[in-house]
Design a protein around this nucleic acid. Structure first.
Lengths: 216, 216
DNA sequence: AGCAGAGCGGAACGATCCGTTCCAGCAATT
DNA sequence: AATTGCTGGAACGGATCGTTCCGCTCTGCT
């Protein structure tokens, strides 16, 4: 993992920045309550290398979550842009879903939410993501490619279900997630289907997750 | 919770047996690593009331898991019996899935597996469940009601996905789980669909979960 | 050549959590 | 009244984990 020739202490430090973030992402995606020491070990550095960069575990989690949120927003913006540019709606939506699932942004955003005190940036990102989702779902309904009762908040729940697949190594997990994503999409792309049972989730049901539990 | 009039200490003890099991099921289904004290509190009894009945947390978990396994086997046997008796395959399968999801046996079996050392009874139950699943899936393929590449081990993964829905109170969670079960079934009941991507999970991929991790 | 200090590894500390044990009290039975 | 089974919950001991701290290395500058 440390194959790049290092020219000086400063270069190693710069490289550690990336190595640590990668390790942290991998560890916390697998287990949001993993100890900090596990991140250090995975990164192949000592614990101080972490604390030199982030004043606490919470700030590291906040950073990871924000990165995930921005990644999601970027993917969603691309999807919306493609739709507005006249791309095939079903294809654009499929691409969007596959990219989100592959990037596993859900594990970084929804799943890490509640482990830190959100900043304004998190709030803004979440709001922006919600707007993009809404726009996306509206376009799908206009194009009549999805079942009529497919709701905005179904999106989040579907990502949650797919993120629950936690098998084996990265590759196998990715395969399986794509498999069940395809199965879910097969159920979603049915414009004439009878409505699903039960009221769809509404966005507010997800909101509670962003408040840190240990708050007094 | 303790409204039933008690006639004597012995009656209270007998009632506690049930109260404790119910509380334990509820608590551990919500969080398999919950502390024992949480179970006692939910049951409204002291900790000794638990330890009088089960010598350790592990044995309580083993008991819950076995109960869940037996419940699953009972539901699966009914479904197979209905199929063999000539019931409508799609309907019998739907009923089966709804019953399993409502009983949340997955949270008691697969999710609790690994928190205790399985006994022979667990092993036998798991094997029996596997046989029943296989029989069920074979019947569905014979009747050509499901997509051709729907595999035995897809069953477990689907229960896992649905068990990942953990919203709000019991009722709301039940509603949502039925909703996404219906969505998944809509994707499954497509005999002429193109194959899903990626190799299906195979049964062996699940087996590792039954071995307790802290083993030397 | 030598030195100040940035950056690092990892041991040590203190707080928290949790499974289990233990003890004093109580209620039913004898 | 004495006994016995059961209970509630405090107390204990071990484990875990976030954070701090110390001594070392190696770099960049003088």
């Amino acid at each position: 993992m440390t194959t790049i020739p290092l020219s000086g202490r400063r270069a190693q430090a710069a490289r550690n920045d990336a190595v640590i973030l990668d390790a942290a992402r991998e560890v916390f995606v697998a287990d949001p309550s993993a100890p900090i020491a596990a991140v250090a070990q995975k990164a192949g550095v000592g614990i101080s290398a972490l604390y030199r960069r982030y004043p606490s575990k919470e700030e590291l989690l906040a950073k990871l979550c924000l990165d995930g949120l921005l990644a999601y927003v970027a993917i969603a913006e691309e999807a919306n842009a493609a739709l507005d540019a006249g791309a095939d709606p079903a294809e654009a939506f499929t691409t969007f879903m596959v990219r989100v699932v592959d990037a596993d942004t859900h594990s970084l955003t929804q799943r890490l939410a509640g482990t830190f005190h959100p900043t304004d940036e998190h709030t803004r990102g979440a709001i922006r993501a919600g707007e993009l989702n809404q726009h996306l779902v509206e376009r799908l309904h206009e194009a009549r490619v999805v079942r009529p009762d497919f709701a905005l908040a179904d999106l989040g729940q579907i990502f949650e279900m797919i993120a629950a697949i936690r098998f084996g190594d990265d590759e196998r997990r990715g395969q399986l997630r794509r498999r069940y994503l395809a199965l879910l999409l097969a159920g979603i792309f049915q414009p004439d289907a009878a409505p699903l049972p039960g009221p769809a989730p509404y966005v507010g049901e997800f909101a509670g997750r962003w408040t840190k539990k240990t708050e007094v």
